[in-house]
């Protein structure tokens, strides 16, 4: 397939209803969530409606993009745009995690030591500066999540999935479609395994370790960071699945496969964040 790259015009899509549909979906999702959180009737239905509209939008919109891509309407300049955009998007995601990592850092380095300092003893007598901590008003004890069980296995899983996705990429570049597809499948499998173990870990935490969202700041930061990361893994697995389906349909060429690369970057990003989590949440 040849691309009349530098000569063709920059692709400007025709008018599209999908953005508006997406906005409606988000309005429904937000309203539904607000209603549910405040225990008002029918919130659940609104929320489900929002998800449905969102799904329609995603299918419609991405279908369109895939069609445009396969119809060779993207020249090299468009390809460069995609790369730039993906890089900036990942940067914004990094900053999202920075907020939560920053909170954890602040709590461990500033808040807990401060609460346990002699100056605050008049308010919180006997509170000591140890981590993990559920705060000075904590009542029932809990057990911390240890690094060298499931979390270590999960680290291995994610690291190897980084390898498999790269292996798949080599396959794509070398035009070995078999290797591409198997590599992707392995990556998805490893991701799914990771998620399964995480669900198991959460159940363990709730049922045996008395470690919950409500377990002071340790519970708060633990579930917020790992949960937000788990959500990203889920997104990543979904995107990998889309790429797998497209690969099986014969999409992508050895030279032009931004969609694959974008997802691979995203997957590596999720991977790197996990390493950070592993070190600061489980290990230290």
């Amino acid at each position: 397939m040849s691309h009349p790259a530098s000569t063709s015009r920059y692709f400007v899509p025709e008018p599209s209803p999908w953005p508006l549909v997406g906005s409606i979906a988000l309005l429904l999702l937000a309203s539904g969530a607000v209603l549910m959180m405040n225990s008002i009737a029918n919130g659940g239905f609104v929320l489900i409606g929002g998800f449905a509209v969102l799904a329609i939008m995603l299918f419609g919109w991405f279908g369109r993009v895939i069609g445009e891509s396969e119809g060779q309407r993207y020249n090299l300049q468009v390809d460069r745009s995609f790369r730039l955009a993906m890089a900036w998007f990942i940067f914004s995601e990094v900053m999202f995690f920075v907020a939560f990592f920053g909170a954890l850092f602040y709590i461990r380095v500033v808040a807990i030591p401060d609460l346990a300092s002699p100056e605050q003893a008049a308010l919180w007598e006997g509170f000591r500066n140890v981590w993990p901590s559920a705060g000075p008003a904590a009542k029932d004890p809990f057990t911390q999540m240890h690094a060298w069980g499931i979390p270590a296995i999960n680290t291995l899983l994610l690291l190897s999935s980084g390898v498999t996705v790269t292996w798949a990429h080599w396959g794509l570049v070398a035009n070995k479609r078999q290797q591409l597809i198997i590599g992707l499948m392995l990556t998805i499998l490893l991701g799914a395994l990771f998620l399964t173990l995480q669900v198991y870990e959460y159940r363990e935490a709730y049922s045996h370790l008395n470690l919950k969202m409500t377990t002071g700041v340790y519970g708060s930061t633990f579930f917020m960071l790992t949960g937000f990361h788990g959500f990203h893994v889920t997104l990543g697995v979904t995107m990998l699945t889309v790429i797998l389906v497209r690969a099986m349909k014969g999409h992508f060429t050895a030279e032009r496969h931004f969609a694959f690369e974008g997802v691979a970057w995203y997957w590596h990003f999720v991977d790197v964040v996990w390493l950070g989590l592993f070190v600061v949440i489980y290990w230290l």
């Binding site: 709590i107 808040a111 919180w124 705060g135 000075p136 008003a137 904590a138 969202m213 700041v217 579930f223």
Partner: peptide
């Protein structure tokens, strides 16, 4: 969660 509540260590 207790990110912003001292009682929970936030």
């Amino acid at each position: 969660t207790s990110f912003f509540s001292a009682a929970g260590g936030g």
